[in-house]
Amino acid sequence: MRTIILSFLTCLLLFCGAKAQNTTKMPPMVVVEQGSFLIGGTVTTDKQGNTYHADHGYVFYQIPTNPRPYPLVFLHGIHQASKTWESTPDGREGFQNIFLRQGFSTYNMTHPRRGNAGRSQEKALVEPVFDEQIWYTKWRIGVYPDYFEGVQFPKDKESLEQFFRQITPNTGPMDFEVETDAIAALFDKLGGAIMVAHSRGVMQTWKTIPKTENIKAVVAWEGGGFFSFPDDEPRPDIDVDEGIEYIMVSPDTFERFTRIPMLLVYGDNIPEAKSNIPELDIWRIRLRLAKLWAATVNRHGGDVTVIHLPEIGIYGNTHFPMSDLNNTKIAEIMAKWLERKGLNN
Rank of each mutant, 00 (worst) to 15 (best):
K47N: 09
G223I: 14
Y147I: 08
L12S: 05
K207T: 03
P154F: 03
E279F: 13
F176M: 02
T45W: 02
S120N: 07
R119E: 13
I141M: 06
R286C: 12
P89D: 00
P27K: 00
G172H: 05
E122M: 05
S323C: 13
R200F: 11
V219M: 03
E311H: 13
V178H: 00
T3S: 05
R101W: 03
R114L: 15
S120T: 08
G118I: 08
R235W: 01
T180I: 07
P261G: 02
M262Y: 00
M195H: 02
G142E: 11
G223K: 01
L12I: 12
Y144D: 08
G301Q: 09
I277N: 07
F229W: 07
I4N: 01
L289I: 15
D231M: 10
N66Q: 14
V73P: 04
V59L: 12
M1A: 07
F320L: 13
T168W: 04
W337D: 02
K329W: 00
F37Y: 14
M203S: 15
D324M: 02
I141Q: 10
K19R: 14
A20S: 15
N116P: 14
F164W: 04
A185T: 14
D231S: 05
Q34T: 11
D231A: 08
L287D: 03
G91Y: 09
L309D: 07
N327H: 11
Q204S: 10
L13K: 02
G192I: 02
P310H: 12
Y52L: 11
V304Y: 03
D90A: 09
Q166T: 06
D232F: 01
C11A: 12
G267E: 12
N326Y: 06
F320M: 01
G342A: 10
H111V: 07
G172C: 04
P71W: 11
M26A: 12
Q133N: 14
L125R: 10
N214Y: 13
F74L: 11
Y266T: 07
V265Q: 12
K216E: 00
W206Y: 15
M26F: 14
L12K: 02
E127Q: 06
Q80R: 14
T137R: 01
K83V: 09
T253W: 00
Y58L: 02
V202Y: 05
V129M: 09
T42E: 13
A185K: 11
V32D: 08
I312R: 07
V306A: 13
V143A: 09
N344S: 15
S82T: 07
R286K: 08
M203E: 14
K291R: 15
V306L: 14
K341N: 04
L12E: 02
L287M: 06
G41P: 10
E161F: 10
F8V: 11
T305F: 03
H56V: 10
F37T: 03
N170R: 04
W293Q: 04
F148K: 10
A182D: 05
H79F: 09
R286T: 08
K157P: 01
L287W: 13
V178D: 02
F229E: 07
M1G: 15
E149H: 13
R299Y: 07
E161N: 11
H56D: 14
N170Y: 12
I312L: 11
E339M: 08
T51G: 09
V143G: 02
R140L: 08
I260K: 00
V196L: 10
I277V: 15
A20Y: 06
E158T: 01
P128V: 06
G17A: 13
G94Y: 09
